[in-house]
Simulated scan of single mutants.
Amino acid sequence: MVLLVTGSLALLAVDVLAQPLSRRSLITGLILLILLPAVLLGQYAPPPYRLPYRWRWVLLGLQTLLTYLPVLLFEYSWLSLLGFLAGAVLLTVPRPASLVVALAVVASGPLLVHSSLVNTTRTGTSVLLSTTITGSSVYAVVHLTLLAARLQAAQKHTARLAEHRERARITQDLHDLLGSSLVSIALRSETALRDTPESTAAHRALRDIAALARGAHDEVRAVAHGHTSASLQTELSHVQRLLAGAAITTRTTLPPQPRLPAPVGNCLSALLREAVGNVLQHSRASQCEVVVEQDSSCVRLSVTNDGAPAATSDSATSGSAQPRGGTGLASLRFRVLALGGALETSHTGEHFRLVAELPLDPAVALGDADGVHEGARA
């Protein structure tokens, strides 16, 4: 549409400049040619730039004035704009009135040619055909653009509905399959707590089991409803309790009040959860150190334990202490890379260390200052 408008106005400008006009008339024509692109493109703009219906009526009135009044000065050259006016009428005026008004605009061309207002050697038939072709082309291009925009909006709406239906199904399945089991575990643990002396290790273990079951139930509900935000401080407190329950000495270093963007905080929380889970499942650690460092541009998380199995040739090469076939760190590595960060692991003797570094502004790190990168939204 931009090419059609620009090309037509360029040809019109050439015709105007070729006419033997006074300086005042020439300046008037150039001013009108500067105003016309804004009026035409404002009238034909597709969503989301399309103006409200009321403003399109205002532009239609202005376009009518800019189409007919200059004919008195520039005669035949200006008649080429009748097709754009006919197309705007078809797009703005409701049916069936738009057809009647558009036909009147098309018919006005031959009438002006046969009147004394326009001096030209062209016939009324040629003006009629050119106006009809231009108006039809304008209407077809803009109408197809609007249909494409509506189709895209309908597809997005359909995708959202499908997402809501799938989320509702997952919510129901999680509630039916896991929710009741987790609540049952929590209730049984709390019942056993009342029959266990508070000073015993069994009492502390049952209390932790009940808290874990309640927490897992809340997390299942949050995942089912799409509320997956996680606080790094909360996750750190959680893993400290887990490590203490496994008799692993924990040292933590955390900035006083870390302020992290939601995607970065969620990613670090998942990393910490996965790293500590690996310590509990795949190591014989007696000590674990968690360090979080933050500066003006990035945040760094490192988790080190002293109970990694002896490195084999494969694990020493890959730098990973995960069991073969594990996908936890692999999926987290993808999330870190999607946010413009880096994830490294090292295995030295019995010490295994995981280090993740993430930028505080993932959009800038990915070269996307507008924040529209897909990875930054993940």
Rank of each mutant, 00 (worst) to 15 (best):
H227G: 06
C288L: 11
A342L: 07
R122Q: 12
L65T: 13
S126L: 08
P323Q: 13
V299W: 09
C298M: 14
Q294G: 02
T121K: 14
L329C: 04
F84Q: 03
S126P: 00
E289Q: 14
A216F: 06
V16K: 09
S320N: 00
A262F: 02
V101E: 00
D195S: 14
I27F: 15
T134L: 07
V105W: 10
G7L: 09
L147W: 09
Y49A: 11
L151R: 15
T134M: 15
L254D: 07
G42P: 00
R207E: 03
L30P: 09
R50E: 00
A321P: 05
L41T: 08
A162M: 11
T249M: 03
T6E: 11
S286V: 06
V93Q: 01
I31A: 15
L32D: 05
L21I: 09
A154S: 13
S331E: 14
P362Q: 12
H351Q: 09
L65P: 02
E235C: 04
F352G: 05
L33N: 02
L73G: 04
D314F: 12
E190L: 09
S229D: 07
S136R: 03
A140K: 03
G277L: 08
H175Y: 03
R50H: 01
R188V: 15
S184R: 14
L79H: 01
V220Q: 00
V142A: 12
L32T: 01
V372L: 10
D368R: 12
Q43C: 02
L212E: 04
D361Q: 11
A330L: 15
T64K: 05
V303H: 02
G319W: 04
S297I: 01
R333F: 04
L66F: 15
Q287C: 10
G179A: 02
V220W: 00
H282G: 01
G265A: 12
T125W: 12
R23Q: 14
S77V: 09
D295P: 04
V239Q: 15
A275L: 08
A186T: 06
V279W: 04
